[in-house]
Design a protein around this nucleic acid. Structure first.
Lengths: 206, 206
DNA sequence: AACTCTAACTTACCGCCGTTAAGTATATCC
DNA sequence: GGATATACTTAACGGCGGTAAGTTAGAGTT
């Protein structure tokens, strides 16, 4: 009775083929230039076939981004869960986050920047604890907690500090992606300035 | 020979009518739900008429956003150009910027968040010194310069510090707009935390 | 081997969209 | 009163996301 299994394998293969085709278009040309028709053309199926594997375009691209952000979560978790020097771990983590966004601009845009057009149920899905974006956020929160536990931060709420740091990192990431032409000067220096300022601002006065 | 003048006045009126109709749709329903057809329907003209006044949809909505951001620039410039207490002026300015974004979410999105689809020439236009967004940025830079001049900031480059502050402010603004469902906790506190941390981080150690 | 049924896939379409070419009417000018 | 320019519309193009209905191939059943 390996028939059913083979069928499922084939179905899974096609799903992956769709994802790969979509990713290629997505990486090269961004959200709007991925059309169901072009994806279909690439894999040499009719456009409707895609809908047998993905609910709609948003679902397809969301799945795509999840795949990619899983890499970020993996990168983070590979850094380990011990933070002998939490301040430098924090800076390194923020650096990693920002660089990841710059390396995968269209994924970053689709995940965090493009305004949702979907209903509350889908929005919840995008923000759920299971999502890869949130797993990365969890890691940030862990480091922040350690900074606070070791007394290196002034006594601020872990959640609030994490959100504030995320906001700042998101700000520089998204601006650099969306406005590449703006005279940013030395980008690396600017990124470091944002990170260093935020972290310094959260440190205890002593 | 008042004929030509009257004609021009009428033309200007229709242009403004188009802008008003588009703004109504835009504020209520955002970029994607403004369609040339719906704007035309609202003003009871055919869709093509709009193209006699605006090059395309992007031009129409850009003009719209310029109108709105002129208000922000005005708000800033009304605060005066003297900064006896530049640190508190800076915080107040950032606060104003963020609040303005939250009050005009769709304008903010269209101006700073939505990735450009236009060519380099248009991009330049959007970022030019004349644009209202940049006038607001100029004001921020002035305050930062004053902070540095008065020795309240560690000796950092004016441009870099301004960009870093803008990035942080943009980060929290855009996240709050784009992900309204995320558990942000007390938004006001979070906004203040971002602002206070960045400003504190830029201050001189003394 | 013939029949049934199911899953995979396609065809043909819907109702939108931004935009443009071509046409019409109207008011001004000479 | 005829020419001209301006304002505006009609009708269409090509594209989009998405769906209902139809086709086909092949496994399961007798």
């Amino acid at each position: 009775m390996g028939v059913k299994e083979r069928r499922e394998r084939q179905k899974e293969n096609l799903r992956q083929e769709i994802l790969d085709a979509a990713r290629k278009l997505f990486v090269e040309e961004g959200y709007d230039n991925v059309t169901m028709r072009r994806v279909a053309e690439q894999i040499e199926y009719s456009p409707t076939t895609i809908y047998l594997h993905f609910k709609d375009k948003a679902d397809l691209l969301f799945s795509l981004c999840q795949e990619t952000f899983a890499k970020l979560a993996g990168q983070f978790e590979a850094l380990g869960h011990e933070f002998p020097n939490p301040l430098s771990s924090l800076k390194k983590g923020l650096r990693t986050y920002i660089q990841f966004g710059l390396d995968h601009p269209n994924h970053y845009l689709a995940t965090f920047v493009i305004p949702y057009k979907c209903d509350a149920q889908e929005r919840e899905r995008h923000l759920s604890q299971d999502s890869m974006g949130m797993r990365a956020f969890d890691y940030l929160r862990m480091i922040v907690a350690e900074c606070i536990r070791q007394g290196m931060f002034r006594p601020v709420d872990v959640e609030e500090a994490s959100r504030a740091l995320w906001a700042a990192a998101h700000g520089i990431t998204s601006l650099l992606i969306v406005h590449p032409v703006f005279p940013w000067g030395d980008r690396e220096r600017l990124i470091d300035l944002v990170i260093d300022s935020m972290v310094a601002g959260l440190q205890s006065k002593g």
